[in-house]
Amino acid sequence: MPMAMSDDIILATEGLTKDFKGFTAVDDVTLRVRRGSIHALIGPNGAGKTTCFNLLTKFLEPTRGTITYNGRNITATKPTDVARLGMVRSFQISAVFPHMSVMENVRIALQKKRGESFDFWRSERTLDTLDDEVRNLVGAVGLGDFVAAKAVELPYGRKRALEIATTLALDPEMLLLDEPMAGMGHEDVERIAALIRRIAANRTILMVEHNLSVVASLSDTITVLARGRVLAQGDYATVSKDPRVIEAYIGAGHG
């Protein structure tokens, strides 16, 4: 592979495989995510998308294969350290701190900029300096009116927005979004799609998504998984015409 090419790839996997006691959830997946692109991972239910995601962020250990992030082998890196390298993930079930306010949720992520927070002798008012930044982030995802609300009290779409604001607070180079639109109403989908487009301006996004119209309008590259294997790869026009993709979806009962 020429140098320029490999420099352009932020995240790559080589023969990534995960066996669960005889069942192969992810089978020999080779992935190339270009820097600055929006890359979508799609496929019928049980195709191994979320497993793949968990492998990439090291929440699961791969059985075989390697993962390279920014030219660095992260196959044996711990999840916390993956986050510190600038690759931050979201979760399928909304990942907020339920009994903390919107403000506090985002502040926890911003607090990371101070380094570790073992200073138990300082007042939490030392964190007040982060308030302006928190307000900006919260405003950017349309939660400006809800800063005082507890996360648990927010409607579903707003929780997802809060989660994105929290993730953005880390200013990650690469964002992994696990079904950002799952369970969302039409209005929320539009808002989050616009948000994703906006935040993708200076970072790379890899997302798992079921909503094909969102995938079609947002992504630069699509990888289709079926039964743990890569079925097809390319832009929406190419992938959607691929007979194997059509068969996999219709064969699995998806229109």
Binding site: A83, R84, V88, S90, A95, R114, S117, D119
Partner: peptide
């Protein structure tokens, strides 16, 4: 009520998320 206490609260509320924040 310290920055440390805030992180501990976050860990108690949602440990995987706290890990994913680093």
């Amino acid at each position: 009520h310290s920055p440390f206490g805030q992180v501990c609260k976050a860990i108690r509320e949602n440990e995987p998320r706290a890990i994913s924040l680093g």
